[in-house]
């Protein structure tokens, strides 16, 4: 009789453990992955801790088994092309990236920046400045002087004697305006509206909200 009782108690304990295992597992994992436990005293008068947790971006561990499926391959370092692409970031900043089979054994890799007059009859081109690059660089952000103006770049090598040898030329780009156009349509003479629009605030969109959220940090 006693043996049966012991056996039953044993079975009960085992089943209790089996039932509680997922709970404990989750519990242990929580302590590993998350900030320290909070609000443990669930049924106390204080339902929630006074201090809210700082908003932390949820960036979960991709090694976790649920996410194994979203495997991805690395992308090629190079496509074996010879190309130089120029892009606009804003009215006064550009971005260039390149893919080249050239090896920079000797000399310095240089990005040479040119400007073009977009409205000139004959597009007059003039050299602006050189940027000395790191040998392993394959992209560069750099400022330019004018908005509403055209630019292009050349990637090349500066020889030890100072001579520049161009290797690739980019597409031209036009920086966007950063102010009102002086051009007035004679049939559409501007109304007296611009005084009220002096201070344009840029970027009122989801990114703005994001920034504000971070700043206020309720």
């Amino acid at each position: 009789m006693l043996i049966i009782t012991y056996f039953l108690i044993f079975v009960l304990l085992i089943s209790l453990m089996i039932i509680l295992v997922p709970y404990f597992k989750a519990f242990l994992r929580e302590n590993k992955q998350l900030k320290p436990g909070i609000g443990r005293e669930e049924f106390s008068a204080e339902f929630f801790p006074d201090k809210p947790k700082k908003e932390t971006p949820i960036d979960y561990n991709w090694k976790a088994h649920l996410n194994k499926e979203l495997d991805f391959g690395e992308l090629p370092q190079t496509y074996g092309d010879n190309r130089l692409v120029l892009m606009v970031k804003n009215s006064h900043n550009l971005y260039a990236y390149w893919d080249t089979t050239t090896r920079w054994d000797r000399g310095t890799p240089v990005l040479r920046v040119y400007e073009l007059n977009p409205s000139g009859e004959e597009k007059d081109i003039s050299f602006l400045f050189d940027i000395d690059l790191e040998k392993n660089a394959d992209n560069w952000f750099f400022p330019v002087p004018k908005d509403n103006w055209m630019y292009y770049v050349e990637l090349g090598r500066r020889e030890p004697d100072g001579k520049f040898i161009p290797l690739l030329r980019s597409n031209p780009v036009t920086t966007p305006r950063a102010s009102l156009s002086p051009a007035i349509d004679e049939n559409w003479i501007p109304c007296d509206l611009y005084g009220r629009l002096n201070n344009i605030s840029y970027g009122l969109s989801s990114g703005y909200m994001h920034k504000e959220r971070e700043r206020t940090d309720h």
Partner: peptide, 14 residues
Amino acid sequence: THGLLYASRRPKYA
């Protein structure tokens, strides 16, 4: 807003 205000010709009605 500035996409229109900074148009190639100044817009009559902003």
